[in-house]
Design a binder for these strands. Structure first.
Length: 662
RNA sequence: UGGGCUGUGGUGCAAUCGGUAGCACGUCUGACUCUGGAUCAGAAGGUUCUAGGUUCGAGUCCUAGCAGCCCAGCCA
């Protein structure tokens, strides 16, 4: 099910998306011997993100749905950008998402010899030639979108000469960039891809799998289609930008007279409040705006995993967003809805106080401790109960007390009675303030008759608060995340005149010959072009292993604390304010770009939290609902002595809405 | 003034391939509640890009426009 229609009607067949309709059509027509065989073809040049998850779910999902198979194939044709680390991370992420490629793990590099033979075949058929034009000349000869190109002066070399030259290219006789092997198609073709595209380039680079066996490497266009053909893929599902390449792939397959899969293009995923382009993600990592590829604010699968997202939630999300050919942007609220839905069902509850306010129950016996029963998961009775300690001194959430309660605020305030979850009814009798006049401690009384949370006399309270026993609580750190960007569309830069660098990048192309906008030129110095990459392709990270630990980024967390009441005992620690060094690519040019929309409040570190003692020893990666606060996941930065929690997502907060409206 | 693709409530998708626009998220009400969570009930919100045309009937077909996205890497 991947769209809302009929989703909730049991028994009703859900409508099929356009890809399924095309497949059904093929099946009905008896094509491909009734097989459905797909593949997920990433380039190992970076980490997978949720946009890839859409493609993975689609390809593996379709295969499963039609009783077919799905391969995992790495399109590793560019040794200068690819690394083994990425291969490993990609396999881990696909597995984590819940998919199994069985024994069908392939690499385009395994086909290099075959691809080379096919190149030779084309040369012999006078369909390919060795070209001595430089990169710049090649670009000039190619023409423009509205003007045909000119034929290369090397276009009509003899088969013999081409064979000889191509062979010497392979032997390493020529330096990088000195020659290419190009297809002989049509320099006047309206489709730029058909204007004698490059098939092979000289690259004296070590490949992560083939080592130094080759110094010429096939281009993606000369590799992808044939790889699908070799693997007998029936349906090559890819993203929209490859529609223009389909005629070329078909041309190759036809010239070579080999098996031809059917390519179907769909729109890639875009999400509000984040960026999906690998170039930008890489920039955030390298610029220190985030702690690494797995920073919990990143839309990467490793980031989402660390944040506490479950594979189930992500898969469900991918089903709900549907598949179409229209470039659209999904509201990140849907992703958040999916993870809440999953975690509400499965995450055990616990009590934790993020910003502690000390409370003394004056009529509660000194030294007494009661272990009260608490429900582990109201959505899952089988999860049972646990004991939580209650004592004279507790911590409450600072937000749960207001000396002067506004209308509709029905938590604790002087003279008011509320319930402590699974505990007692308490009434606030007085307030202790610091010299500065801030509330530092509350004095309350409890009603012994309300043990467990029920009043025998039927008395009602408006609020139930979470709490923690001061003596028994474990101290912990919480990292509270918000959207990475403060605007739904991060590329929307309100920079007048010159226009945002980001915009200029997005707009260029139609008529602009200057492909390198100043800012991008500055930003891409280390290599990457300002492109968003292919269906799986993204510029690689120069520093594999950049995935850091902890929020030690230049893009600073906002200070902790609500700014209202002062924590008792200095309870709330402030996020460390590190020096904010400006990334080089920003220094190089003034124009603002998407990075100026980074949300300064995307991370708030609260280092003196208290959690109930049952959480002692919680495993890294385990998820909990901290009652009334949200879902949290134990971060790898945790140590046996001190837990660190990432807030995956907050609970829906009706009060926050009321308060916001004023 | 090259080529390819796409336009349905705020957002993402549907509409049995001509039969009178539906689902989800979001938003707003109300009920219930030992999480202001969850759950339940309900509401608002669409000239289906525009203009013509065919038809008893058009989101679906035809014509002409308009708008958006992609393509000029020896990236994928």
């Amino acid at each position: 099910m991947n769209n809302g229609n009929d989703n909730t009607k049991p028994g009703a067949a859900r409508s099929r998306n356009f890809i399924e309709e095309l497949i059904d059509e093929d099946l009905r027509a008896g094509r491909y011997e009734g097989r459905v065989h797909t593949r997920f073809p990433p380039e190992p040049n970076g980490y997978l993100h949720i946009g890839h998850a859409k493609s993975i779910c689609l390809n593996f999902g379709l295969a499963a749905q039609y009783g077919g198979q799905c391969n995992l194939r790495f399109d590793d044709t560019n040794p200068t950008k690819e690394e083994e680390e990425y291969v490993q991370s990609i396999m881990q992420d696909v597995r984590w998402l819940g998919f199994d490629w069985g024994d069908r793990l392939f690499f385009a590099s395994d086909y290099f010899e075959q691809l080379h033979a096919w190149a030779v075949q084309l040369i012999k058929a006078l369909k390919a030639y060795v070209c001595d034009l430089t990169a710049e000349q090649t670009r000039e000869y190619r023409g423009t979108l509205t003007r045909p190109g000119r034929e290369s002066p090397y276009r009509n070399r003899s088969v013999q000469e081409n064979l000889d030259l191509f062979d010497r290219m392979r032997r390493g006789e020529f330096p990088d960039g000195s020659r290419t092997l190009r297809a002989k198609v049509d320099m006047a073709h309206a489709n730029m891809n058909m204007r004698d595209p490059v098939l092979y380039r000289i690259l004296h680079a070590t490949h992560h799998r083939t080592g130094d066996a080759w110094c010429i490497y096939p281009m993606y266009d000369f590799t992808h289609g044939q790889s699908d053909s070799i693997e007998r893929i029936t349906h090559s599902i890819c993203t929209l930008e490859f529609e223009d390449h389909r005629p070329l792939y078909d041309w190759f397959l036809e010239q070579l007279d080999i098996y031809r899969p059917r390519q179907i293009e769909f729109a890639r995923l875009d999400l509000t409040y984040t960026v999906m382009s690998k170039r930008k993600l890489l920039e955030l990592v390298e610029g220190g705006y985030v702690s690494g590829w797995d920073d919990p604010r990143m839309p990467t699968l490793s980031g989402l995993r660390r944040r506490g997202y479950t594979p189930e939630a992500i898969r469900n999300f991918c089903e709900r967003i549907g598949v179409a050919k229209f470039n659209s942007t999904v509201d990140i609220a849907l992703l958040e809805h999916c993870i809440r839905e999953d975690l509400n069902q499965h995450a055990p509850r616990a009590m934790a106080v993020l910003r502690p306010l000390k409370v003394v129950i004056e009529n509660y016996p000194e030294g007494q401790v009661e272990w009260l029963d608490a429900v582990n998961n109201p959505e899952e009775p089988a999860a049972g109960t646990r004991k939580v300690p209650f004592s004279r001194v507790l911590y409450l959430e600072q937000d749960d007390f207001r000396e002067e309660p506004p209308p509709k605020y029905y938590r604790l305030s002087p003279g008011r009675e509320v319930r402590l979850r699974y505990g007692y009814f308490i009434t606030c009798t007085s307030v202790v303030k610091s010299a500065a006049g801030e509330v530092v401690e509350l004095r309350c009384t409890y009603d012994p008759a309300t043990r467990g949370g029920d009043a025998p006399d039927g008395r009602k309270v408006k609020a139930t608060l979470h709490w923690v026993s001061a003596e028994h609580a474990l101290s912990a750190e919480a990292r509270l995340y918000d959207h990475l960007f403060s605007k739904p569309d991060p590329s929307e830069v309100a920079s007048p005149g010159a226009g945002g660098a980001d915009q200029s990048r997005d707009r260029e192309g139609a008529g602009g010959v200057s492909h390198d906008a100043t800012v991008d030129a500055a930003c891409q110095r280390q290599g990457p072009r300002p492109s968003d990459g292919g269906e799986a392709g993204y510029e690689r990270a120069t520093a594999p292993g950049a995935g850091g630990s902890g929020p030690s980024h230049r893009f600073q967390p906002v200070e902790g604390g609500s700014g209202s009441s002062q924590p008792a005992d200095g309870a709330v620690s402030r996020g460390t304010q590190a020096s904010s060094s400006v990334p080089s690519c920003l220094r190089a040019s003034e124009p603002r770009d998407y990075k100026s929309n980074l949300n300064p409040h995307s991370l708030e570190v609260v280092s003196t939290c208290f959690v109930e003692p049952s959480l002692r020893g919680a495993a890294v990666g385990s998820r909990y609902q901290f009652e009334r606060l949200g879902y949290f996941c134990v971060d790898p930065d945790s140590s046996p002595e001190r837990l660190v929690f990432n807030r995956t997502v907050t609970l829906k907060d009706a009060w926050a809405k009321i308060e916001k409206k004023g």
